[in-house]
């Protein structure tokens, strides 16, 4: 375990295990980047195809795939739209879910268990069959053609996050909130002042997931928006795909650019898992 700082051998083993596992984890990315630098004729040809040292390296390197991919889709416009949706969704989903989860985890009220199961149940019905009535609801509300169907629901809590945060709140030690209650704080104050800061790693996780989902979602925008100026990056990627005529190298160039922001975001967000919180005590 991490507390065992004296022996070096376990650490060496950890490194070896991690490196061995990292190779397969990296393969999709490596292939993606390699493909993004190949000419279309290089990708699937019998001599140049497959995943071996010989075939993975582009020969020659075709850098122009990147500017071409950038040119093919209105990147700036799509990026702006994507970020707009991400912002509202992350803020909305994390705040509302944190609040609802606190209710389920830390408070007692009538019908709590039943309502919680109902919430879990909303995730168990395949979206394929609710798609039409959901669409009908948004159309009835007059939201069709706007971003509202893609942002407003986030403010009403996401069952996945609510469940996750409930699990976290339940494990947090009760003494702090008990102390606050003794000082006369009401539940809202305890939630905002005590619980939210304590749950930071879990909240970061939720924010990250929400960002990722919205970033990758092209069907939502496609379904509710009809104006090409309002689409997102994930929709833009679709332009390189087609029956009998996908443009692999450009698709992979665009995809590489597409995942970079998430990569950077994750790299920084995961610090909050390392640092933990002083009160619960990181193990180091």
């Amino acid at each position: 375990m991490s507390t065992d700082n004296r022996s070096r051998l376990p650490k060496l083993f950890t490194h070896i295990a991690l490196i061995l596992l990292a190779v397969p984890a990296l393969l999709p990315l490596i292939w993606m980047v390699a493909t993004s630098l190949k000419a279309d004729t290089q990708i699937f040809g019998s001599e140049t195809a497959g995943v071996t040292m010989k075939t993975i390296v582009p020969h020659p390197f075709v850098w122009k795939n990147y500017p071409e991919a950038l040119h093919a889709i209105p990147m700036v416009m799509y990026l702006r739209n994507t970020l707009k949706l991400c912002l509202f969704n992350v803020v909305g989903a994390v705040l509302s879910s944190a609040m609802v989860a606190y209710g389920f985890a830390r408070l007692e009220f009538k019908g709590k268990d039943v309502l919680f199961m109902v919430m879990i149940a909303t995730m168990a019905l395949p979206a394929q069959v609710t798609m039409i009535p959901v669409f009908v609801v948004f159309r009835w509300l007059g939201w069709y053609g706007t971003y509202l169907p893609l942002t407003v629901p986030a403010f009403f809590g996401n069952p996945f996050f609510i469940f996750l945060l409930t699990q976290f709140y339940k494990t947090l030690p009760g003494d702090l909130s008990e102390a606050a209650r003794m000082d006369g704080a009401n539940e809202w104050t305890i939630f905002a002042r005590v619980m939210l800061p304590l749950a930071r790693p879990a909240l970061t996780t939720c924010a990250l997931f929400q960002f990722l989902w919205v970033w990758n979602d092209f069907f939502g925008p496609l379904l509710y928006i009809n104006d090409v100026h309002k689409y997102t990056l994930a929709y833009g990627l679709q332009q390189f795909l087609s029956n009998h005529g996908a443009e692999w190298s450009r698709l992979m160039a665009a995809s590489t650019l597409f995942i970079m922001p998430i990569l950077i975001l994750f790299f920084f967000a995961q610090r909050s898992f390392i640092e933990g919180i002083a009160t619960t005590g990181g193990k180091n």
Binding site: A72, N226, Q238, Q239, F240, L241, S242, N243, G245, A246, E247
Partner: peptide, 11 residues
């Protein structure tokens, strides 16, 4: 309004 699936090289 015209919807199609001609992405990639068909664009």
């Amino acid at each position: 309004r015209f919807w199609h699936e001609l992405g990639g090289i068909w664009m």
